[in-house]
């Protein structure tokens, strides 16, 4: 993961650690956007992606199941089980499916924050 050097990140408070089920996700409202936030507690990792599954444009990824494929963390959409890398958002089940936007996450004193690049309210696009 790398962010472009010029980008500044605005961190917003999403929820408390305890609000997110272990090894599961929740949906966070940020302005008019929906962000899926995942606590991969087995690996001690946090991830955030867009909540919209690009396949049928369903607001569903936060309700998806997380896991790994060859060590890479991923989420499988509850609708048709397409899975996406949590690390970079790319679709792992279908080369032609669009990638997810991913967001940086940090946890401070039980509080979980999601990073928005440039405060634009948009895609902290990570390469």
């Amino acid at each position: 993961m790398s962010l472009s050097n010029t980008a500044t990140i605005t961190w917003f408070f999403a929820c408390k650690v305890e609000d997110v089920p272990a090894n599961g996700g929740v949906c966070v409202k940020y302005r008019d956007e929906q962000i899926a936030l995942f606590h991969f507690s087995r690996r001690g990792e946090w991830y955030a992606t867009q909540n919209l599954c690009p396949h049928r444009r369903q607001m569903a990824l936060s309700r998806g199941m997380i896991g790994t494929q060859g060590g890479e963390p991923k989420v499988a959409c509850p609708f048709h089980k397409k899975s996406f890398s949590l690390a970079d958002g790319r679709c792992l089940s279908d080369d032609t499916e669009c990638s997810l936007t991913t967001y940086p996450v940090k946890v401070e004193e039980d509080r979980v924050y999601i990073g928005i690049v440039n405060g634009s309210g948009h895609a902290a696009v990570m390469a």
Binding site: N23, F40, R42, R43, M65, G67, T68, Q69, G71, P73, K74, A76, K81, S83
Partner: peptide
């Protein structure tokens, strides 16, 4: 998680979890 610790490896997926 107990089952994974005893008999599996890695972190599970949408096939083995359900």
């Amino acid at each position: 998680d107990e089952v994974l610790d005893h008999y599996g490896h890695g972190d599970g997926c949408e096939v083995c979890k359900p």
